[in-house]
Amino acid sequence: MKTPPEDHEWMRWMDGEMTPAESAAFEKRLESDPDLRAEVEQARHLTDLLRAEMPADMQVPHADFFNSQIQVRIAQESDSSRRPVAEGGWLRQLFRSVASPWGFAAAAALVALLVVMRPAADSRSADSTWVTSSYTPNPSVTAHTYHSTAAGATVLELDGLPEIPAEKKVAGLRVDHAQQDRGGQVASFHDATGTPLLVMSLDAQGRPHPWSPRSR
């Protein structure tokens, strides 16, 4: 039996849209109609091709950063809706979220790192990383850097931060290497095991947004 050109029955059967009774009746018809069987086989093959080439679920590059950027944008929108006139711009927003002086130090370092670090071609080598200039958003804080051969690391020193009480233990983050992705718009800093310590991005206005994977 020739299948009518716009017969949607095979499609409803193939797509699981039939009731059990309809399905049973169609399967009987299928047994006796080679044209219909061929039609179904071709459609099924197309489905297999499409599903093989176009998975329904894909791994999002920088998935955690994907989430954090959404949170940043939501926070920005929420902030701007509460205060129509920006108070102090992005730096104030950045530091408002950092309550402690040690957090402030980390945030200051983050901004400085994004601006000044220029990983060489072999960015995994500490010896090949250098600092071209320094910048701190807070004028009372000064930054300078040097390469410590003994430590095998580039050291960033920040002067002018609030004094840290002696009883407070401060553990530094050891950045082993840095990577830049998405045309230099995203920089990530990793420890020796490759675990990301810090991720920073530039928004459309070139403003840096830091994010610590360890805080998640």
């Binding site: 998975p55 679920d57 999002v60 998935a63 994907f66 989430n67």
Partner: peptide, 13 residues
């Protein structure tokens, strides 16, 4: 954030 995590792979795909 939980909804984003749940559906980001499918939305991205």
């Amino acid at each position: 954030d939980a909804l984003v995590t749940k559906y980001r792979g499918r939305v991205y795909a």
